[in-house]
């Protein structure tokens, strides 16, 4: 869809959601690059209400033709909505559209949280360098708060598929092994060995069935120069499961960004301490190791799917090639490291 048509149809959609508004229009629309699972745009909505001119910065997240991660956008929308207004900072959700009529594919619109960084590019340079430890403590404290949250009280138990504490590991491993079976473009001896180890050495039942963000890593939150976090983003893989899954994913060595520590931010023991203090849970080393190796399998499944999506031709966005080229060997190395071979 051409940008002019998108602006016109988005404006018409917004006008229909705002019966008290007049002269509703979309301005200053710009694509935010980098997302492989959704197309993201920043725009300003202008309108007149009660004789007064108003404007608000908003974000549009639209499904592309073939996304890197197959998820229901309702899951992402409801996860944001559940946490909004609480201690876990997230943007406010406004509208969810699951049909194709309005914009040609499903989408949601959220309030923009302006003035902060999300990308990792500037993180290891001034003026962010001095606040990295504080940012790290905040990062794993928020992850602990997500783990501590009650899915029933948040209303997420009604949206996300139920699971039992003793079954969560098998469900997740089955799912991501299935993705590898379906999408693998070349045999992966390291990851297949990791899967055999995971099945032979299952973790203990989850301490609780918690909300799992699913992609909690540096680069998926909005941060400032003082170590503050103002919005946790990218909830499309949110599900109920073992809270150690998120901790293990955050420790995936591909998210060290060459800085030699988790997330490129904080020594591992300090990250675990912040998470345990905020969650009230324990990160038992053997169980955590299982979820760290699982994170390598999950990561590899996502990078392999990226290559498969590009090869199948439905979506030839170059962002799909990048993880296949830059991360598949790195993810193998991460798995070798977690298994003690590197």
């Amino acid at each position: 869809m051409e940008e002019a048509e998108l602006v016109q149809r988005l404006g018409a959609y917004a006008a229909a959601q705002m019966p008290g508004a007049r002269d509703v229009a979309v301005t200053e629309i710009a694509r935010i690059t980098g997302g492989a699972s959704r197309q993201t745009y920043r725009f300003t909505l202008v309108w007149t209400e009660g004789g007064e001119a108003r404007r608000r910065g908003l974000i549009l997240r639209r499904d592309p033709a073939d996304s890197l991660i197959d998820t229901e956008r309702r899951v992402e929308f409801e996860a944001y909505r559940a946490f909004h207004g609480g201690e876990v900072p997230v943007p406010e959700m406004l509208w969810l559209e699951e049909g194709d009529e309005a914009l040609g594919s499903p989408f949601f619109v959220a309030a923009e949280i302006a003035g902060f960084q999300a990308g990792t590019g500037p993180l290891w340079t001034a003026p962010y360098l001095e606040s990295l430890p504080e940012l790290g403590r905040r990062k794993w404290t928020i992850l602990g708060q997500i783990a501590r949250a009650d899915p029933v009280a948040l209303g997420l138990a009604a949206v996300l598929p139920a699971t039992r504490a003793e079954d969560v590991w098998r469900r997740e491993l089955d799912h991501w092994e299935g993705v590898l079976d379906a999408d693998e473009t070349e045999p992966l001896p390291v990851i297949r060995a990791a899967i055999r180890w995971l099945r032979a050495n299952p973790p203990p039942p989850a301490q609780k069935v918690a909300v799992v963000h699913g992609d909690y890593r540096t680069g998926n939150f909005l941060y400032d120069t003082q170590g503050g976090i103002h919005g946790v983003l990218d909830w499309e893989m949110c599900h109920l499961g073992d809270p150690l899954e998120d901790l293990g994913w955050s420790f995936n060595p591909v998210w060290y960004f060459g800085q030699g520590k988790p997330g490129g931010l904080l020594p591992r023991d300090e990250a675990i301490a912040a998470w345990e203090a905020a969650s009230g849970l324990v990160a038992a080393p053997d169980a955590l190791k299982w979820w760290e190796l699982f994170a390598c399998v999950k990561g590899q499944a996502i990078w392999v799917s990226s290559a498969r999506t590009w090869l199948d031709g439905a979506n030839r966005d170059p962002i799909l090639v990048y993880p296949a080229w830059a991360l598949i060997d790195a993810q193998d190395r991460a798995a070798l490291k977690v298994m003690g071979h590197l």
Binding site: V254, W255, Y256, F257, G258, A326, D329, Q331, R333, A334
Partner: peptide, 9 residues
């Protein structure tokens, strides 16, 4: 051998 110069691991 496959490791790229910018590899995170």
């Amino acid at each position: 051998r496959r490791r790229l110069s910018g590899s995170p691991v």
